Amino acid sequence: MSTIIVVFASMSGNTEEMADAITAGIREAGIEPVVKEVMDTNASELEAYDGIILGAYTWGDGELPDEFLDFYEEMDEINLEERKIAVFGSGDSSYPIFGAAVDILSAKLEERGGKKVLDGLKIELNPSADEKQDCIQYGKSFVESLA
């Protein structure tokens, strides 16, 4: 059976709500994911999983949140070949680059050999009821991509 880890950072709870819905979808699809806040893990742990989903809010004008900076740097030391990857996050469209953290993390995962199986999922601020359903479907679709 495939193994999946979901690692996220959330300041206001928006990205955590997305993570909760995505993991609910993963569970509905029959896999029990490991879920961790980014401060409670390190990048080398990603190598132990078949599927990797990262989630981060975008800070300021298009930056990773501070909580993700050390993890991001540690990613330079890992090999993610044969791993399936996806990234999600919340953002605020009043800034020049909407959801840039999703793009930054996705690019780094691909640089380290990960195979992107879903486009990045970006949601404006907190997810609506419909967007939570989109997140659940995102988790299910990720599991399907591992088959």
Rank of each mutant, 00 (worst) to 15 (best):
L69D: 11
V6T: 12
I31L: 14
V34Q: 13
E77W: 06
A100H: 03
G99V: 11
A129K: 11
A9K: 03
E32L: 05
F8D: 00
G13F: 09
A21F: 10
A107Q: 11
N14H: 13
D134S: 12
K132P: 05
G120H: 14
P65S: 11
E17R: 06
E81Y: 06
L146F: 15
E45H: 10
A19C: 09
L80F: 07
E47H: 07
L54T: 07
L121I: 08
A56I: 04
F68R: 00
Y57H: 15
E67T: 05
V102E: 10
P65T: 12
D119I: 03
D50H: 09
A29Y: 06
V35A: 05
K36S: 02
V7P: 02
G114R: 03
I78Y: 06
E63Q: 13
K36P: 11
K84I: 10
V35T: 13
S141H: 02
K36Y: 01
F142E: 06
E17A: 13
V7R: 02
V6I: 12
E16S: 01
T3A: 12
T15W: 06
Y57R: 03
A29K: 12
L121N: 10
K132Q: 14
Y57F: 15
N126K: 08
M1S: 10
L125F: 12
I5S: 01
K140D: 00
Y138I: 08
V38D: 00
A147E: 11
G30I: 15
S128D: 02
E77G: 00
V34F: 04
L121S: 07
G99M: 11
E47Y: 07
G89V: 09
G139K: 15
S145P: 04
G120D: 05
D20I: 14
I31V: 14
L121D: 01
G99R: 02
F8H: 07
P33S: 14
I85C: 14
E74W: 02
E131C: 02
D76I: 10
Y72S: 07
V35N: 04
E37V: 15
A9P: 05
A101I: 04
E63R: 06
E45G: 08
G99K: 06
A107L: 08
D70H: 05
I85K: 01
